[in-house]
């Protein structure tokens, strides 16, 4: 898994590629806290390059959402592909997150 973090105007983009599983999820969590530390109020998980998520990833997502809400921000799931999308539905997360398909849509959603 690779993570690139871009923070601009309260908005943090975490561009993730590869797998987020039990092993790599802690890295993602660290990246989230890093982004928030750099001034990110809202966090966008750009999952365009992600092809695998395990429950540990969802743990990070929910923690991030709770954290962002404290600052009146929110966590956004961007560009989840059809392979992983069903997992959001399965976990009921589809009702807890905003889903977008592009940077522009994410920015507009704030």
């Amino acid at each position: 898994m690779d993570i690139r973090c871009e923070v601009a105007n309260d908005l943090a983009f975490l561009r993730i590629s590869g797998r987020v599983d039990t092993v790599t999820a802690p890295e993602l969590e660290a990246a989230v806290y890093g982004a928030i530390g750099q001034g990110g109020v809202s966090v966008v998980f750009d999952l365009g390059q992600v092809d695998y998520l395990s429950s540990s990833a969802f743990r990070v997502f929910i923690k991030t959402q709770k954290e962002c809400r404290k600052n009146d921000g929110q966590a956004i799931i961007q560009a989840a592909n059809p392979l992983i999308m069903p997992l959001f539905k399965l976990s009921g997360f589809d009702r807890l997150f905003l889903f977008t398909d592009s940077d522009a849509a994410s920015r507009a959603a704030i």
Binding site: S54, S55, I62, S91, G92
Partner: peptide, 18 residues
Amino acid sequence: DTDAILEDRTVGGLGIHF
């Protein structure tokens, strides 16, 4: 409980749910 609101969701149990 997948229908719980955000504040009530815990981080455990999701794996077994999957």
